[in-house]
Amino acid sequence: YLFYRTLELIDLGGIVDIIDNYDRPGSASTDATYAEAGTYAYAFEDKAGKRIPKAGVKAEAGVGRARAEWSVFEAEAKGPNASAGVHADASGVGAMARAEIASASASAGPLGVKVGLGVDTGVDLSGGSAEVKVLGCGVSVGRKMGISLFGSELSFKLW
């Protein structure tokens, strides 16, 4: 735990995320409709996405979803959907509920962009950042700087 906490404190442009996912294999998927719910708990496994301790609960459902990921790159497009989740990891906790008409998002390392129409509501206090959203509008301050307006957002991890 101390090793990962130290990495988080000296994080340069999302290096903890890069360490956790640098070897993530490429994958792509599409769903006409989807409904998922579940829990997860991972810690100290030598596998992509499972090195940093984390646990959570999430439920989501929607119509139309396409997703692709490889290494530290991700892209996703969604039609009408709703989700709710709670998480805790080595760096903090959060809870968020979301309802969207549609969205498209992409991230590459520390930069993230999302264009959509939705109403996210919740709080996330993790990774050296605080994020607050009410009805799709909000801000992220700290290590992650971002602004959200009715479901669209722009964010950047500073260190």
Rank of each mutant, 00 (worst) to 15 (best):
E45C: 07
I15L: 15
I18V: 14
A35L: 13
G112D: 11
E69S: 14
G49A: 02
K47R: 14
I19R: 12
V119H: 09
S91N: 05
V57C: 04
Y34C: 10
E69Q: 15
G14A: 03
Y42F: 15
G49L: 06
A108S: 10
A41N: 09
V119A: 15
G94E: 00
Y22T: 12
H87A: 12
A82F: 03
V63D: 07
I19T: 11
V115R: 06
D17Q: 07
G79D: 10
G118W: 01
G92L: 05
G14T: 03
R51H: 00
S29H: 08
I52A: 02
S83F: 00
E100H: 11
V86F: 09
D31N: 13
R65M: 11
A95K: 00
E36N: 15
A61C: 04
G79H: 04
E74L: 08
G85I: 01
I19Y: 13
F73V: 08
D17M: 06
G49W: 02
A77Q: 01
V63C: 01
H87Y: 13
A28Q: 11
N21Q: 09
I15A: 15
I101C: 12
A59F: 00
A48Y: 07
A32P: 05
A35I: 13
A84R: 02
D20T: 05
P110I: 01
E100L: 04
A77C: 07
G109H: 07
V86Y: 12
V115H: 09
A97M: 04
G38Q: 02
A95W: 05
A37C: 08
P25D: 14
A75I: 05
E60K: 14
A90T: 03
E45W: 09
K47F: 10
S83Y: 08
G26L: 05
R65G: 04
N81S: 15
R67A: 14
K50E: 11
K58M: 09
G85W: 00
D31V: 11
K78Q: 15
D20Y: 00
E45R: 10
D46Y: 15
D31P: 00
R98W: 03
G122V: 08
A48Q: 08
A68E: 02
A43D: 05
V72W: 02
L111G: 06
Y22H: 07
S83T: 03
A106C: 07
S91H: 11
A77S: 06
E74P: 02
K50D: 03
L111T: 10
D124G: 04
G64Q: 11
I18G: 10
A75P: 06
A99D: 09
G122Y: 00
P25R: 14
P53L: 00
E45I: 08
S103E: 03
K50A: 15
A41F: 12
Y42D: 07
Y40F: 12
A82D: 02
